[in-house]
Design a protein around this nucleic acid. Sequence first.
DNA 1: TCAAATAGAGTGATTAGTCAATCAATTGTG
DNA 2: CACAATTGATTGACTAATCACTCTATTTGA
Lengths: 187, 187
Amino acid sequence: MIDKQELIFETALRLFVSSGFHGTPTSLIAKEAGVANGTLFHYFATKEELIVALYVKLKREMTLHLAETAQEGPTLKETLKSQFLCSLFWALDHKDAFKYIEQFNSSPYMAMVSAEIIAEQLACILGVLRTGIESHQLSKMPEDLMLSMVGSHVYGLNRYLISANCPKATQHQIISDSFEMLWKMLT
Amino acid sequence: MIDKQELIFETALRLFVSSGFHGTPTSLIAKEAGVANGTLFHYFATKEELIVALYVKLKREMTLHLAETAQEGPTLKETLKSQFLCSLFWALDHKDAFKYIEQFNSSPYMAMVSAEIIAEQLACILGVLRTGIESHQLSKMPEDLMLSMVGSHVYGLNRYLISANCPKATQHQIISDSFEMLWKMLT
DNA sequence: TCAAATAGAGTGATTAGTCAATCAATTGTG
DNA sequence: CACAATTGATTGACTAATCACTCTATTTGA
């Protein structure tokens, strides 16, 4: 038996990214997912609930992947680099997911995500940064500011990689170089 | 005589930022702007046209402000710093405009803005970066990548400043420090 | 006098969400 | 094992409301 909820999620992701929240009616999502209109509302009470649930799901998947894949290195720098690389590789493998997260982040729907959920996503990287600041390996600055800087760096680099569409080897080189830039910036 | 078009722009900005594109009907924009429904469509043929026109207008204002305010310094670093500071001060003074631009940037409406318009906005900063790369004062890397990095840095810092809501003096210190970080990263 | 600006009621299409009716799977019972 | 009983998933026609946009009449200003 196919998982209809998952089907709805996948279809919604694709449509929301290509046509926006407004531009995709729930009826179309249901149709393209091959389920009945009512089924969608069996799983999600409102369209808004679907939009938010999809965001939380994608973030969870990203965080989970990071937790499973990123290696704890012998030095702080290597640990951070591993997280950096894993995040970017995940994003490159999940372009739609990444676009959706960005779109959602700067939309008013973002206000509907509880602080706990947000904190849950950041815990992993926050731990590393905090250690770095405390041990004076990283510049002393507000945690949130550093989080914001690192986050923006990752997002910006990813946007470039998606738009530039260069070969894999070049991509890896750029990602690696970018990490060095980031590291120089943080220390 | 009050400028109704400007009134519509201001109201639309406020409502779109607080409720999103979908969440704000044109009828509400007209009502809150104190004009008739038909007047809105006298100035903008469609809702989409209003959304895009508002974006272009805000970007123009931002670019114009930068062109008027940023100083050409004796060194490349000082020129760049001036642009950096001016951008951030403008953003702090126009929080809604900044949020709107972000929201628009990562929405499918962005695809409706012509390449020329986008290039027009970037010309100013691009000139400085290009000079820097050519004169080997900045690291050698793709122009677009550097643009993306600088842009993200500005956006990320601004998001932090808006959320942290610290006193003016602290803000200025953080902005100044952040520029040093950015400079370290680029060289 | 005329064109542009403004008004606001009206319209047709769309859409989020409902609901009553099946269907499939599981569980309880003699 | 047979066979109700129960539960939750699924359907798709339906509706009430909304919304983008139109139309026509009126006003304004040069």
